[in-house]
């Protein structure tokens, strides 16, 4: 599908802060399932945005603001064309080996998630991953939120979580079965999330490559998923991170506007 996407993040501080540093991963990188026609990232008050490809191959921007500062507005906007690639993320610039995506967090996968992942069996790795996604979808109720994600084990025990938390459980579960898996952050173009940001997971299957699994929605990402970044966990793939110095409460408002553009390829337009 072809769409014009406008994402806005508004940060308001209850008191003016002395300074703020921001890291953005809001620039989609094209791959077989994604054609980026144009893309723009901006920040207000105006600051130099320094572009850097991070260790995973994501395109990131960083900026700093000197205070006194009451609000920061971030905009990412552009036109993209997504294709249903049955979830396969092929054609990305891969900078890290599969082994990295088998790494466990410090406290390990936890017994419950390991047992859960173990209980899902399939004819081969691919079908097993599909079943894992389905089982996770049934097991964890999807409750969208934009607040910081909690630990996978805790969310699993509670049985309710946001897309990022469910993605993290999928990653943890897959790794516990020695399947390379990584965290992906992105946007949903059909507005189904109810929150601005969405997240899913990718797992690696030999012979095919990285395949995306959306445990929150219960299906493999199709053309409504716009992929922004991936990493070993949520924090390394987070679409934006910010730290400020000063005594203030931070209120964040995110808005995502998607206008479907006419289905057309470049060729027919010309």
């Amino acid at each position: 599908m072809r769409a014009r996407v406008t994402l806005q993040i508004e940060v308001a501080f209850s008191e003016p802060v002395r300074s703020a540093n921001t890291l953005l991963r809001l620039t989609p990188r094209p791959f077989d399932g994604l054609h980026v026609l144009d893309w723009f990232v901006g920040v207000e008050p105006v600051a130099t945005l320094r572009r850097i490809e991070d260790g995973y191959g994501n395109m990131s921007h960083s900026c700093s603001h000197a205070g006194p500062l009451e609000r920061i507005a971030i905009t990412a906007e552009g036109q993209v064309e997504t294709q249903d690639a049955a979830g396969v993320s092929r054609g990305l610039h891969e900078k890290q080996p599969l082994d990295l995506f088998l790494r466990h967090s410090h406290d390990g996968p936890g017994e419950e998630i390991t047992a859960f992942a173990k209980s899902v069996s399939g004819a081969d790795r691919l079908s097993r991953l599909h079943l894992l996604m389905g089982a996770l979808h049934d097991r964890i109720a999807f409750a969208p939120t934009d607040s910081a994600p909690r630990a996978a084990a805790a969310v699993f025990a509670e049985g309710k979580g946001c897309a990022r938390e469910i993605a993290q459980i999928f990653v943890t579960a897959a790794r516990s079965q020695n399947i390379p898996a990584r965290f992906v952050s992105g946007l949903l173009l059909d507005g189904a999330e109810g929150a601005a940001f969405h997240a899913w997971a990718e797992a690696h299957v030999d012979g095919i490559g990285w395949i995306a699994f959306d445990g929150a929605l219960g299906f493999c990402p199709r053309d409504v998923h716009l992929r922004l970044a991936h990493g070993v966990d949520y924090w390394s793939a987070a679409p934006w991170r910010q730290a400020f110095s000063g005594y203030a409460d931070q209120k964040v408002e995110t808005r995502l506007k998607v206008t479907a553009a006419r289905q057309a390829s470049w060729q027919t337009q010309q």
């Binding site: 991070d54 080996p97 088998l102």
Partner: peptide, 17 residues
Amino acid sequence: PPDLIFRNECYRPEMQG
């Protein structure tokens, strides 16, 4: 062996390259 490096929490992917 690569897994010794990449599965180690002290390996920082941010530093790659």
